[in-house]
Amino acid sequence: MKAPEFDYVRPDTLEDVFVLLDDETCDARLLAGGQSLIAALNFRLDAPELLIDINRIDGLSGIVEDGDNIRIGALTRHVEVENSQIVARHLPLLSKAIGNVAHAAIRNRGTFGGSLALADPAAEIPACCLAYDAIITASSSSGNRTIRAADFFHGLYETALEDHEIITAVEFKKRAPNDLVAFDEITRRHGDYAMAGLAFSAAAKGKIEDPHIVFFGISDRPIRAVEAEAILEGARLDQPAIAAAASKATEGIELSSDTSASEAMKAHLARTLLNRALTSILEEKP
């Protein structure tokens, strides 16, 4: 199908973007990588009046170290994250995850901020942001505000972002080298959206501290397994702890089925993913 008609502007500055977003009479969409938006337009699932192309705005792209923090610009393409030494060194979960995002041609174009703004429940990047307690910067004519990843994902394709706001950057704390990390997903085919996925991160000082167990593809958003986390918090990683955590993997999580798997299947896969991830960590670090 062919996209319906719309207007298109390509502002050079964020200020110009804010003016356009503040116009409540105009149904506008921000166009970043476009890897989901343009597909939706081609299918006529969306018919905005205006596309605001933010691809040429300076300063929205790039990965920088800033003391204990890493800042990823919203327009940073997935391929840049994939190839980044900074990410590989300080954000290993993201580094493990990023190659699972679709395929090479999509990663060349898709953006970090775009993935968060879309908030596909089966996507990898939102899950990693939640697992790493990322801080998302939303900018607008009234200034910048920061939103914790934990507060950002509200539901199926729904976020805390207001209509007049744009994601400009995402900040992460550098992770310690001995952090526990695991990323895994079950897809029928390479690069597909996950039937179920897991992003796991925790600090380890003899015992597990601050575990973040994030599932994606099983609910209406990336979601933390708080019951399982509670079991792991302060625990020594061993088989009984793993079994206990896995058994509670989807406790309290509202599951969503899709054409690939029923809720029961998704719950089972989530338990399996957690069990496997923790077991592999245990086997790596005797």
Partner: peptide, 15 residues
């Protein structure tokens, strides 16, 4: 210099 999906990019974006 990089491969992209031609259906997921507007022509005007190639300006």
């Amino acid at each position: 210099g990089r491969i992209v999906r031609g259906c997921l990019m507007l022509a005007i974006q190639a300006n």
